[in-house]
Design a binder for these strands. Structure first.
Length: 492
RNA sequence: GGCGGCGUAGCCAAGAGGCCCAAGGCGACGGUUUGCAAAACCGUUAUUCGCCGGUUCGAAUCCGGCCGCCGCCUCCA
């Protein structure tokens, strides 16, 4: 059985088949860059990163598009709604584009540290105003949209399938509407495609309806069509965007093109903190920079970025992740265990005895690979996939303790770690920096001076002195590990 | 009010009718190893899956009720 993905549109797992054999187009809703990325962003983008990586592992040629929203995302849909970027820029006393640029860089920096592959295309909403205006023009011409006072709204009543993704209908929503409805709208559910800009609004462009700026939902449709065509294989995003954002995308795209917009809709679940949704507007979020540095009251220490990745992959993308320092700490330990054994395998392989790969080991590796793929094929069950990696860890550690293990065997183990743990899950690095920088080389030398002294003391059976040296190193966070051959050290 | 989801060991988390007296990780405990540690390996750590009923030869998994929690319906990954 091939890859099965849960399609939010049909509410069940479906065999994945791209429109064009061997090629996959993916569009994922990117961040609105008005603040540093937080754990919620991490869950979303790590999840879709693994999807992209796995599709490539399966041999698909993937085009991965993830937008950057730098204009048009309003604080709410009412008339007083402010542009989020413009609002934050005013607060930080900077130009909206400067603010967007700064947080865009910050975002990529954090994603790089999480080992998320860069999207093939990262289109900015502000760079696609023309395409967005064209799309609005089409919708006005076909009477799916109407202009009022310099703003253009999508007429939801004209699009019969509105609500098919989120399973709601217009009548129900009217009953539950909490937002004050703009008097310009024909129907409360209508949404803005183009908004008229007040003279003091910095971000504005000329259009057939006067000066204004695009509505938030519009950019994803315009850019998805531009780079991936009228129909895209997969569109991903956070569960909270299912309605209204994705529903609106479907309406405007399918109204304009007359063909299905997205074949597989994928939504990742949310990150909660103390069972409360973590969100920018709730101000209870932990940014990735805080997680990496430990600068947050809920964190007891700084965390290796890939420990965050490991924590995310430990659960399913469609399950909520309730964040805690304890859970992240556990993920860090597990991540470290994998890293340690991979380092060990790579170090030992060149000096291991020559010879063929052991048949029994080869068989086991093949079996791990099969179970890993089976788990990933089941709607990306990374939790089970990771458990297979941990079984590989145990096997590798056992092989390392056996001095007769051949170089070929260790090579095959390394290869599987690299492919499954590295290429697909992204928690195994291609290279682990040991003594790259000058400071680290110096450090290594200094620690080794002390290690030599301690080993001399041990040889002299002066264990008091040996232990005292070890304790001193322990105080500065350096742990020693003795093996029959030599003593190694690592940071706690 | 409408729509949707969740509740599995001390913690995180898979499993969705029999392979389950329930994977994997963290932690804890015991053992092997070690001068002692650390690391690693081996073993133990849920006869039971929120509670109560039902369907079934058989249920953590299906159905009903109850309790608790969460999300969406307004911006959020």
């Amino acid at each position: 059985m091939g890859l099965q993905l849960y399609n939010s549109l049909t509410r069940r797992k479906e065999e994945f088949e791209p429109l064009e054999k061997g090629r996959v187009g993916i569009y994922v809703c990117g961040p609105t860059v008005y603040g540093h990325a937080h754990l919620g962003h991490a869950k979303s983008y790590v999840s879709f990163d693994v999807l992209v990586r796995y599709l490539r592992y399966l041999g698909y040629a993937v085009t991965y598009v993830q937008n950057v929203t730098d204009v048009g995302h309003l604080t709410d849909d009412a008339d007083e709604g402010e542009d989020k970027i413009a609002k934050e820029a005013k607060k930080e006393k900077t130009h909206p584009m400067a603010l967007a640029e700064m947080y865009t860089r910050s975002f990529f920096e954090d994603m790089d540290r999480l080992n998320c592959l860069r999207p093939d295309i990262s289109p900015r909403a502000s760079g696609h105003i023309i395409e967005q205006i064209e799309l609005v023009k089409t919708l006005v011409e076909t009477e799916y949209a109407y202009e009022v006072n310099g703003s253009v709204y999508f007429d939801v009543s004209k699009f019969e399938e509105y609500g098919k993704l989120s399973g709601r209908n217009i009548e129900e929503m009217q009953a539950g509407a909490r937002v004050e409805v703009s008097p310009d709208k024909k129907n409360p559910a209508d949404f803005a495609l183009w908004k008229k800009a007040e003279p003091n609004h910095i971000m504005q462009w000329p259009s057939p309806w006067g000066k204004g700026y695009p509505g938030w939902h519009l950019e994803c449709s315009a850019m998805s069509m531009k780079y991936l065509g009228a129909t895209v294989d997969i569109h991903g995003g956070g569960l909270e965007n299912q309605f209204p954002h994705h529903e609106c995308e479907i309406a405007q795209s399918e109204a304009a093109n007359g063909v299905q917009f997205v074949r597989y809709w994928m939504h990742n679940n949310m990150v909660t903190v103390d069972s409360q949704k973590m969100g920018k507007s709730l101000n209870n979020f932990i940014t990735l920079k805080q997680a990496f540095s430990g600068a947050h009251e809920r964190l007891t220490r700084s965390y290796e970025p890939l420990a965050v990745r490991q924590l995310i992959l430990n659960s399913h993308y469609r399950s909520p992740l309730d964040f805690s320092d304890a859970a992240l700490f556990a993920a860090l330990s597990g991540y470290g265990k994998i890293a340690d054994v991979v380092k060990g395998v790579r170090k030992m392989a060149p000096q291991a005895p020559e010879g063929d790969i052991e048949g029994e080991v080869a068989e086991q590796l093949e079996q791990f690979k099969g179970r890993f793929e089976e788990a990933m094929n089941d709607d990306l069950n990374t939790s089970v996939a990771l458990s297979v990696v941990f079984e590989l860890v145990r096997l590798a550690n056992t092989l390392l303790e056996d001095s007769s293990t051949t170089a070929a065997t260790l090579g095959a183990v390394d290869d599987l770690f690299t492919r499954l743990g590295g290429d697909v899950l992204g928690v195994v690095k291609d290279e682990y920096e040991q003594t790259g920088r000058a400071g680290e080389a110096m450090m290594d030398k200094l620690v080794n001076v002390l290690i030599d002294q301690r080993n001399q003391a041990r040889k002299d059976r002066d264990f008091a002195r040996a232990d005292s040296l070890r304790d001193s190193l322990d105080e500065v966070g350096i742990v020693l590990e003795d093996t029959p051959q030599k003593t190694t050290w690592r940071m706690k």
